[in-house]
Amino acid sequence: MRVLRDFWKNKAFLLMVLPGALWLILFFYVPVTGNIVAFKNFKYSDGGFFKSLMDSPWVGFDNFKFLFTSNNAYLITRNTVLYNFAFIVLGTIFAVFIAIVLSEIRSRKMKKIYQTSMLFPYFLSWVIISYFVYAFLSPDKGLLNSIIGAFGGENVNWYNEPKYWPFILIFLGIWKGVGYNSIIYFASILGINSTYYEAAMVDGASKWQQIKNVTIPQLVPLISILSILAVGNIFRADFGLFYQIPRNSGALYEVTSVLDTYIYNGLTSTGDIGMTAAAGLYQSVVGCILVVGVNLFMRKFDEESALF
């Protein structure tokens, strides 16, 4: 009875959360429980979702065994982690560098123009960027091969040469996000108390020394927070970058396969639903452990910036 009365008293708020809560159930909680297909030999049956799930036989950890005995598991994990690691380290260095240089530029108007231009790639989809990249890398028409040709070099068949792709992918990943990330650091630099700089000037510090001894130390907490949070997501690759930009070129799989592309290909072409779901669950579980671990670490280190 009391429960009902409480419900009635909160009816307006309950109605407000209702659409969102329904969405969370249908698009999060039901799929999460659907992860049991990773432990099944999944077959579609005509009876719909629940019947398919029930009718598929249990296979225990067989799907995981298949996944981890293939070479793929190592390759995709390595690629995912290493690419993300490169994005964290290089992306942070570039973003901080740009933010500092930007903050030292005198003209306000130019600052604004630079920031706006650098933000542009952030707003584009990887499909669009793949066309941009193609304009440069197309083997017969691309700008890069024209330039190489003009200097008497041989045409490079970019989409068949794995050795260039780690650089291309890392470059593009940073290129797309650096404008956005540098804004965070830029805002933080603007927030540094000017008395630090005044004190440094009184002590005779040059501008370089001020950057080294005031600006960068003041940014360190933010840099570590953002990097540590990024480590929590190191198991999640940007699907668009690895799927659209290399144009699904088979010759490049070794350097372009990441967890997300592997799962997508498994779902749409190889058709082994169980093993693909196992790969997905592996990604989610390790990702979850990382996020929780990182947050526990953050709580010890800096309570304010932990997510929960």
């Binding site: 249908l26 999460v32 992860n35 719909g48 779901a277 997905g280």
Partner: peptide, 16 residues
């Protein structure tokens, strides 16, 4: 904290 994953989401979207 957790992502449901592409495969279960796909199955839910299509069969449920």
């Amino acid at each position: 904290l957790f992502s449901p994953g592409m495969v279960p989401s796909y199955i839910v979207m299509t069969t449920l």
